[in-house]
Design a protein around this nucleic acid. Sequence first.
RNA 1: GCCGGAGUGGCGGAAUGGCAGACGCGGCGGACUCAAAAUCCGUUGGCCGCAAGGCCGUGAAGGUUCGACUCCUUUCUCCGGCACCA
Length: 840
Amino acid sequence: MAEYNPQAVEAKWRDTWDSLGVFNADADPSRPKYYLLEMLPYPSGTLHMGHMRNYTIGDAVARYRRMRGFNVLHPIGWDAFGLPAENAAIKRGTPPRDWTNANIAQMKSVCRRFGFSYDWRREISTCEPEYYRWNQWFFLRMLERGLAYRKRSLVNWCPKCQTVLANEQVVDGCCWQHDDTPVEAKEIEQWFLRITQYADALLDDMVELEGGWPERVLVMQRNWIGKSRGTRVRFPAEGARDSKVQIEVFTTRVDTIFGAAAVILSPAHALLQTLFAGQPNHAKLEEEAARLRARIIRGADLATAEKEGFFTGRFATNPFSGQKVPIWVGNFVLAEYGTGAVMAVPAHDQRDFEFAQKYKIAFPVVIQPVESSPLRVPLKADEMKEAFTDYGRLVNSGAYSGLTSEAAIEKMTADAQTQGIGEAETTYRLKDWGISRQRYWGTPIPVIYCVQCGIVPVPDKELPVRLPENVLLTGQGQSPLANVPAFVNVKCPKCGAPGRRETDTMDTFIDSSWYFFRYTDPHNDRAPFDSALVRYWFPIDQYIGGIEHAILHLIYSRFFCKVMRDLGLVEIREPVRRLFSQGMVLKDSAKMSKSKGNVVGAIDMAEKYGCDTARMYTLFAAPPEKDLEWSEQGIEGCARFLHRVFRLIDRYAQLLRDISPRDSRPTKISAASEKEKILLRKAHQTLRRVTADFEARWHFNTSVALIMELVNTLQDREPLDKHARPEVLKQVLELLTVMLTPIAPHLAEELWEMLGHKESLHAEEWPQYSAELAQEEQVEVVIQINGRVRGRICVDVGLPEEELAERAFADPKIEQLLRGARVVKRVVIPDKLVNVVVAQ
RNA sequence: GCCGGAGUGGCGGAAUGGCAGACGCGGCGGACUCAAAAUCCGUUGGCCGCAAGGCCGUGAAGGUUCGACUCCUUUCUCCGGCACCA
């Protein structure tokens, strides 16, 4: 009797697969392709079971698809640039490249150990010049097309660190390393990508993704883009030195404009100086504005922060009513959205209402609820407790009084256009993508600043602009590259005059925005990829990753794809056909993390139970989209199961080894014994349902459960070969082995060999279930009276309705219960149930 | 506040209009053993009952239906996202 030794079995098949290169895939137009991808991992070092879930799901699907005859592209690589490497360098003095490569080596060995079926020839690492030169190449293409540009913008600045912080490094408004130091808003010059130019395309092309992407991801992206149609209206300002000063406001509710009680500007509004100029207290006003500017806060605090503001001393004219309204500054008006100024309509906007209450600004009601509204009385401004923000009917609005809000918005916008006081406008919440990082460990931005020529792109033939090694990293001050003279000082490629290189590096989201194209042609040194290869492999058939990337990565990637399409590199609009978001792995109801001390190490599991067991438990413990609570006892159950399967097959291996494949094909059911029927039926039913799970439902937990049921059926006091012919037994055990392949691939290979096969299982075709063998002969039909189960009968499958009803009524117990009752109705569902409805 | 998602035994979960609790974990009982581990067998939602059997039960309340975990309405709780976006 052989003993199942997972580690030995796993090492054996890992080596076999490696030496045969069985997971390498090459473009082959004669075969259907399947591009399966898990999101590019960041090489943070050790891998725990939380990381492994993603790959385990992907690998199960990859192996299944391969057996279905698809040419499966299943690559992996490393998101190798980024802050943690730089911070490790600052802390421990290890160069970022060494730290990163050591982590990659470690993670790679874990992935290999788990037997994930990657085509390792296609492995990429984004910190290698062979990769990031194409980041630079794409940047230059965007620069040529005006999609990359420079502008001053606000950043998070930590005065202690003397550096810019990423949004994620701001915790509760303070620096992550100095929790007593509030982050300041500082304006510096940065590079931006004009993603807003693609806002409509990003929105409209989502129809291609519907059905294939989780609805919530699409909703999140729609909200993020935040398209909003409204009207831009100009309010001429009075009294300012420049008499032509106009304040533009953006509103989605132009129908309420007769109710405007003020115009409110953002503290960062460009016109403030102009408005303050010439007023006796202008210094005081400047100071106030500066105070509000400095306290610009982001995130959740914003929504709860007290509304604050002050009167500028100037007035503007409402172009619709001709009324004079005061111009205010308010801390709740966002500089970056719309025009940075709003008209305040306290009666019909809650924020404006609160602002007016606080500063005692009087206002009229200009929208009354329609007759059907639950708000009965006509609204009166001095009695209102909150703003009335619904659509209604206009009052006190001159010629527009009496119109509905809908009609008024349309007419007033059109009138604004003809009178030259405004126009229809669409705004977006989406902003251009700031990609400059004052950091070392990233892709250098390929631009030179020349005193003569200004901004000069690095010529293509000089790419890549290499990141210098051995750079001193302190975490203090400006971009580390600025301190490397050999890097900074260059001749202008245009005129030869002395120039300076750009010393900022790119956001690492650039790296992951197009990496999946590179996988199709990872070693190309003339172009980012060969378009013909992309044409064959794209779109990605299945992308798997965490929900945390629902917005950033998945919008940036879509944006890059659209730019590439405009560059003529690809033909598709969308890179990813189907997206799957797996749930988290929890331990003690918390996400695994070193600081919480609740990590379950991948290698530990492989050593203790074997990675097949770890993979199986990962698939079994919960459906893949839900969070999974890791349980030591749970994984032990899976280990027990795999040992049981091994013993089961080992018991009959000798007997079955020499049965030829021909003999183990589906057997005629009529010739089968009762025991054989039970085995064949269960095996083919399992195959049918497991296949459905892999094809459509993606509920691998039920697949595992079904396979366990099959094994339970095979487990018997009596030896199976007593009542079943070896060829039947062999067929059933082979089906079991094949179904285990995506879940526990090493063990499956071993069992396959034990059953007498010389060829590796990976080349085996996923079998088709036999409907004839799966068919039950008899079914239990439930008999209900008034919807309550009162009896069961066994009948032949497919018994016609009438006969089934007769059988039900003939049942002695039912007959007795129905005696004297008046049957009102009967519902007969063949093979399922009979429900008799009787009058009470 | 707005937009999603979820709520089922002691636990993870199954059942998408037709027998609620598949499968696994844990528990209980037993076999094997000098003993233990491993393995195997049985049992395991609650209540009533010697039993046959009955009643209750999918967060709560209503509704649709012959029949609802499943569909609809209201509501509670938890999780996630967005949040002064004009």
